[in-house]
Design a protein around this nucleic acid. Structure first.
Length: 431
RNA sequence: GCCGGGGUGGGGUAGUGGAUAUCCUUGGGGACUGUGGAUCCCCGGACCCGGGUUCAAUUCCCGGUCCCGGCCCCA
């Protein structure tokens, strides 16, 4: 009987696992360099954790079920609520708290390009200070990860601000702010006419809806925010300090990366708990869904506990960035430097070859032959493992205490004393 | 949940209402216990599942399932 995979889930074979391991490794390394500490959360949570903050729409898209004890539980659809629960359960942790994690997340929806039912998400948050500096640090980490993956020039960051957008919408006569956010969120998928009519349904006039469409259509440099808004919103309707903070944040983000950072009114993020800055990163060709996204959510802790903890963070799923890395030719595993395939022609007792392999392993990767086969086959195997050198060990070598080293890229080969060979490895090794 | 397009060895494919289902590649073994991605030889491996129509279904029809893509939603 053939058992098929569950829809939207994936097997992860070495050819993708290698690059994916590097992707997550780079993200984790950058997070650590920034001083973030790793945490992990349960894969299963009470469904109520998501009811509180998001309502039935999200709940209907969760991978949830009633367990044997009659509890409504769900495979976690996001990381943040669990992390907030963790943080608020401890009062001794000094702030700012910088935490990251790489959970698997689940959603019960139809799979499509860049979206599966199970995926891995890198996630990082700063809890405590409600400052432009914390905002910039989180976005800067996101950019540094993408840059470390050699994706400079392949992406750009778009930022916006919920408060500013909300005030903008109000000044245009819009009364149903949530509905307007939903229309804006769909901006990229609709034409001007349906956008305008969608906005008109939220309380704006046609003229105002068209004005909004124009503002949303053109991202601009973050430093121009004030200029762009002046004339659109009456001065008294918008806090100067919010705009100053956004422009300052944009300036700080520029200290992390050369990549383009734009202000973009169309970024609102669907998640209702965002309160201030929101941001996403897109591939430069606009082919894929957003690579990552996040923002400030100052009210979530209060919703889930009796504590008030401002927070800012982002999540980056592994699926979209994989598409981007493949397109950019960067989907390759981490390189281990020189590596050795220990081929053996010894009859019976192969201890000499194994001693050699194990000595190499103090400094380098070594693969030792474990089959009985001719040298020709072993050399083929050496090539297919991707090793840069082959060591050939036969009776001659074992008797004389030597090894024959063959460079698999140039074909050059020499025989030298084993001790001499190992010494040279030790000297060349960085550590 | 809804809509569209697909499913032939591990991957890529050809083909057919009836015969031993094509080719390439990959995998295993051998030539080959002293030199690699080669060559030659041998071997293994497939019509997604169920039902219907039919003398006969991998082929036609229906349903399911999975894959790809879109909608909804976006964590």
């Amino acid at each position: 009987m053939k058992i098929e995979k569950i829809k939207g889930f994936r097997d992860q074979f070495p050819e993708d696992m290698g690059p994916r391991k590097r992707l997550l490794g780079v993200a984790e390394r950058q997070a650590e360099i920034f001083g973030f500490l790793k945490v992990d959360v349960p894969s299963l949570e009470s469904l109520d954790l998501y009811r509180i903050k998001s309502g039935e729409e999200l709940v209907s898209q969760t991978y949830s079920f009633v367990d044997k004890g009659g509890r409504e539980v769900t495979m976690i659809p996001e990381f943040t609520p669990s992390v907030v629960r963790m943080l608020t359960s401890r009062k001794d942790i000094s702030r700012p708290v910088r935490w990251y994690g790489t959970p698997k997340l689940w959603r019960y929806e139809e799979p499509q390009a860049g979206r599966l039912r199970e995926h891995i998400q890198f996630n990082a948050d700063i809890f405590g200070p409600d400052t432009a500096e914390a905002d910039a640090e989180v976005i800067g980490l996101a950019a540094s990860i993408l840059d470390s993956l050699e994706l400079n020039g392949e992406y750009e960051i778009r930022i916006s601000n919920r408060e500013i957008t909300e005030k903008l919408l109000k000044s245009l006569g819009i009364t149903d702010i949530q509905a307007a956010f939903a229309v804006i969120d769909r901006f990229r998928k609709t034409d001007e006419e349906s956008f305008v009519s969608g906005i008109m349904e939220t309380g704006a006039s046609r003229e105002q809806a068209q004005k909004l469409h124009e503002m949303i259509s053109k991202p601009f440099g973050v430093g121009e925010l004030k200029k762009k808004i002046t004339g659109s919103i009456p001065e008294e309707d918008i806090g100067q300090d919010i705009m100053e903070r956004m422009m300052y944040t944009g300036k700080l983000i520029g200290t992390y990366t050369e990549s383009s950072v734009k202000y973009d009114f169309s970024i609102v993020r669907g998640l209702s708990y965002y309160t201030g800055i929101v941001f996403e990163a897109f591939d430069i060709m606009g082919e894929f869904r957003s690579i990552l996204g996040g923002g400030r959510y100052n009210n979530l802790a209060a919703l889930l506990s009796d504590q008030d903890i401002p927070a800012v963070g982002f999540g980056m799923g592994d699926v979209v960035i994989e598409l981007l890395m493949k397109r950019a030719g960067k989907w390759h595993p981490e390189s281990y430097g020189d590596s050795y395939y220990v081929a053996s022609l010894l009859r019976g007792d192969k201890a000499y070859a194994f001693e050699t392999a194990n000595s190499i392993r103090r400094f380098r990767k070594a693969v030792v032959e474990v089959s009985e086969r001719g040298l020709s086959s072993q050399m083929k195997a050496a090539a297919s493992t991707g090793c840069t050198y082959a060591l050939i060990i036969g009776d001659k070598e074992a008797k004389s205490g030597t090894v024959t080293v063959r460079d698999l890229t140039t074909g050059e080969q020499k025989t030298l004393y084993r001790e001499e060979f190992l010494d040279s490895l030790e000297k060349e090794s960085p550590q």
